[in-house]
Design a protein around this nucleic acid. Structure first.
Length: 492
DNA sequence: CTGGGGATGGGGCCC
DNA sequence: AGGGCCCCATCCCCA
């Protein structure tokens, strides 16, 4: 026997319990304001809380507290009211922030409603646009259903979207949605193994960290939000995270929702939900379905350029009543204060490494890392003996070259190594040694060439050890300074 | 096996 | 907004 009003009455009861603080076992502190709720309800409503509480539930039955600084209390109140009533109080003023918060909390239902709200607000212009672009849409879309998911989701029960409605929405958007799910699903290691020709690329810390996270269950799972010394401002980003950490959203999370599509959305919802379909479709154009990590075909610049403004989320209010904007990464939970930092951060998701070291082939995400690498590896930039760690100068030590690697050894260590007997003779250096000077540029841009030192011929004296590829060089330290200048990129 | 140190990558933030 | 610096976490190699 099915009593249709049972569910709503049950929810009413729970809401009443919440209002009366009955059986509330979870405190949510939003910028100092405390909201009481039931873990069960939060768990069932939000992918975020699901992950959060999955971890804490093993620990104890005591009160759970989560703290947020990334959205305002009023915003959370709207969401919490929705959780307990199915009714979302949206206004033109709060819809953006509610949607951002919902994205953070991985609440697909709320996001869907927000999208519809925004859509309805723009309905007139949308209709105009639809009419205008109808022809090209047909050309782009593989089928009509896909197109309808972009603009055509109906909202019969706008104030109380049901799960079935959500499912239909998601289902209609399956193409775009699955694209994003795939996008986020593949483990970064996969995409990197595909992108990088190198057998083992050391430069995937971001990826390695995430893989590592899967094996870690403690609260320090998120190294990105590392503690900073007080006063440097670094703590603010950490404050934006709840005090109870949870696995990064990129990791597959076991959920038990009954709707597979809904599950997919929840699993990776944090990265997908704040993204308008149009953006998702934009990404899809770069991607083909398959086992290749989709992100690899897009650069951080492209992603950044197409990034919707919704990614700017309010992180509370400053003392001057000015909203503090933060920018949430669409692929993980990371939030940054500056868009430029987000752009930089995106590279760790795209796997893009635009700065190759042409001496050894290693690639870097940042020019500064390439420079650092070049200085330490290929320029013997550190004036310390590699063996005894003592400070060396051009007088007290020499630069030793081993393949493409250069390092310094003091005269004593050189003698110990038995290479002091090697006659040091002047050599022309046009036919030997790795390049010392280069102008690294992102690939696919204009001339990216290392200069093999015609005009920058170094006053290096090289002696090859015939027993190995060891080469001893007497390097004038001032040369490094010259190289420092040359190392400056010509990247526009 | 383990600890130390180098190399690397990522975030915050200043210029 | 980009470049660059600083700091820190992590990984890896080696003694």
């Amino acid at each position: 026997m099915d009593i249709s009003s049972y569910h709503s009455r049950l929810l009413q009861q729970l809401n009443e319990q919440r209002r009366q603080d009955l059986f509330c076992d979870c405190n949510i502190i939003v910028e100092g304001k405390i909201f009481k709720a039931h873990r069960n309800v939060l768990f069932a409503s939000s992918g975020y809380f699901k992950m959060l509480l999955s971890q804490s539930s093993r620990e104890a039955v005591q009160l759970t507290t989560a703290t947020f600084e990334v959205f305002a209390p009023d915003t959370f109140k709207v969401i919490l009211d929705f959780v307990y009533s199915g009714k979302l109080s949206l206004t033109g003023q709060n819809v953006i922030e509610v949607m951002s918060a919902a994205s953070y909390l991985q609440m697909t239902d709320v996001i869907s409603v927000c999208k519809a709200f925004i859509k309805s607000s723009l309905d007139i212009s949308e209709k105009e646009k639809d009419r205008f672009f109808s022809l090209s849409d047909k050309e782009v879309s593989s089928n009509g259903a896909e197109r309808s998911c972009l603009y055509g989701a109906g909202w019969g029960t706008e104030s109380s979207p049901s799960r079935s409605h959500l499912a239909s929405d998601v289902g209609a958007c399956m193409v775009g949605g699955s694209s994003w799910n795939d996008y986020n699903y593949y483990q970064p290691t996969q995409r990197n193994s595909l992108q990088q020709g190198a057998k083992r690329d050391q430069g995937q810390d971001c990826i390695k960290k995430r893989v590592r996270h899967e094996d870690q269950s403690e609260s320090s799972d998120i190294p990105h939000y590392k503690p900073r010394k007080s006063g440097d401002g670094g703590g603010s980003a950490r404050a934006s995270e709840p005090k109870k950490h949870f696995p990064q959203s990129e990791e597959p999370v076991q959920l038990d929702t009954d709707a597979e599509l809904g599950q997919a959305e929840y699993q990776h919802g944090l990265g997908t939900e704040g993204i308008p379909r149009s953006w998702a479709m934009n990404q899809q154009q770069h991607e083909s379905r398959g086992s290749v990590f989709k992100c690899k075909s897009s650069t951080a610049d492209e992603l950044y350029a197409t990034m919707p403004t919704i990614l700017g989320v309010v992180g509370g209010w400053s003392e001057d009543d000015v909203p503090r904007m933060r920018f949430k990464c669409p692929f993980c939970t990371h939030m940054v204060k500056r868009k430029a930092d987000l752009k930089r951060h995106l590279r760790c998701h795209t796997g893009e490494r635009p700065y190759p070291c042409e001496a050894c082939g290693k690639r870097f995400t940042r020019l500064e890392h390439l420079r650092s690498h070049f200085r330490t590896i290929h320029q013997a930039g550190k004036p310390v003996c590699r063996k005894c760690k003592r400070h060396v100068t051009e007088v007290t030590g020499q630069v030793v070259q081993e393949g493409t690697r250069r390092y310094r050894l003091c005269n004593e260590c050189l003698a110990e190594a038995g290479v002091d007997s090697i006659p040091i003779e002047e050599e022309e250096d046009e036919d030997d040694g790795p390049p010392l000077v280069f102008s690294p540029e992102p690939e696919d841009e204009k001339d990216s060439r290392w200069h093999f030192g015609d005009e920058h011929r170094s006053d290096v004296e090289m002696v090859e050890d015939e027993s190995s590829d060891l080469v001893i060089q007497q390097v004038d330290d001032s040369e490094d300074e010259v190289e420092e200048k040359e190392i400056k990129p010509t990247v526009s």
